[in-house]
Write a protein that binds this DNA or RNA. Sequence first.
DNA 1: GCAAATTTGTTCGTATGTATT
DNA 2: CAATACATACGAACAAATTTG
Lengths: 277, 277
Amino acid sequence: MAADPMYRQIAEDLRSKIEAGELPRGTQLPTEIELRDQYNASRNTVRDAIKWLITRGLVETRPGQGTFVVEKITPFVSTLTGDPETGFGGGEDDIYDLEVKATRREPTASVPRVEIQQVNDATAPELQLGQGSPVVSRHQRRFIDGTPWSLQTSFYPMRYVMDGAARLTDPSDISQGTVSYLRETLGIDQAGWRDMIVVRAPNQVETAFFKLPDDGRVPVVETRRTTFDSRGKPVRLTVSVYPADRNQFAVNVGKVPDEIVAPGSGEDSPSADNSST
Amino acid sequence: MAADPMYRQIAEDLRSKIEAGELPRGTQLPTEIELRDQYNASRNTVRDAIKWLITRGLVETRPGQGTFVVEKITPFVSTLTGDPETGFGGGEDDIYDLEVKATRREPTASVPRVEIQQVNDATAPELQLGQGSPVVSRHQRRFIDGTPWSLQTSFYPMRYVMDGAARLTDPSDISQGTVSYLRETLGIDQAGWRDMIVVRAPNQVETAFFKLPDDGRVPVVETRRTTFDSRGKPVRLTVSVYPADRNQFAVNVGKVPDEIVAPGSGEDSPSADNSST
DNA sequence: GCAAATTTGTTCGTATGTATT
DNA sequence: CAATACATACGAACAAATTTG
């Protein structure tokens, strides 16, 4: 009882039992009352230990049922790169390439929700627009095999609509893809893009849509894709949000083989802990 | 008291005050005793509210001092892509390109720690090695302006050393870079690489090195870079771990302008919350 | 340098509410 | 409806870290 607080000791003990396979995935832990007796602590202390395990994503509690070791999720893998000449985005509108280990799963998307907005303070510089400029936003919810996969919003300068790209405001899929639509109507070519990848806590909308635990311990990955024309001017901004607990990303540079090897994540760092700087 | 639990109401109230600027970054919140009186709740309930804010990274507590609104961190931005022909990795050994908004900061790295290990179960398939094959691991701690930036470990098949690349086991920097060293000694060319990006909770070593809060609420980003030769065979695997609270990543595809625009993250999704599927 | 005051951290006990079986 | 199990809330006491006098 000298070094660590009791709830940490209990938590570490349970953690080691989980990682040693003594408590396999999906099994139920002893109830809080049973743990209280086992560890000779109070129920509140046991609950502190469980809270610590929840934060690390090791267990989950279900009211009226018990505490369970979480099942491992087979992640979705999204490839952020693509062939800038041929494929260039895969042909689908705003949909990233997708490859999934073992089974090939099918992504589906909701009908776009289109809005005219004043450009956000955060996105204005990325689109090189003045504060408050009007933009068209096209928002979609995307699923894989029915489970929520990502939220995606693309922003286009309103000027494109004025200049003739009226279908940008159509609240339906632009089947040919907005890329080729902009090229054909306005002669805007797409020379490349940059993805900015940020990890952050989910907001309320994201927590609800992805059915994440409402204590914000599961982060989301936000990719902000700015597409440029050949003169280096930004054409659009696509913001996609993915829950980090079921998504991974791949980036290819140069010549690489096709198959994606299951990334085993986890404990690769040399076992010994570092001490000096 | 019907809808939300009291600790959530207190937390949301404090959150709105923080986001409205009423409680600026860095300022101290009222003490738990003061909050108890303000909200007419018990101290434990106030502490539950503070815990909720901590999980979301909005505040931090300092024992003996108080609770404070967290300061915003200017993030490091690492570019995962590069020119596959000319630059190809930037010339430094295993160091990614780095660009930082406004000021250009200098990355430094510790002397490599070299170990001969049996290949990990997770990394064996990525390097296409049999279970338990010997590998050389080269581990470095990397800093920017003195603050811990990333932990990086590269794995090479031990066979390379047998075949003549003895310096791979040198516990010092290979100044010319391992890429050109392998090309000159063994004729191994580097045709491309793939980065797998995973977000997960930090382990004990990472928590200590990055000085992260020990409750694992700050995730880490793990990039697993597999480098391939022109025949599509893996040459090496570089695993880098970055704390998500001070790092962002950029991926360039095709032709894009040089300057990286400050990515403002956050609240871009259309304001209204989604309801139906 | 030490002691007191302040503030958060841990642990206990207890009671009541809510969700599930 | 009853039993079970987790969720919330209160009160209290002591420990540990930090600042202040």
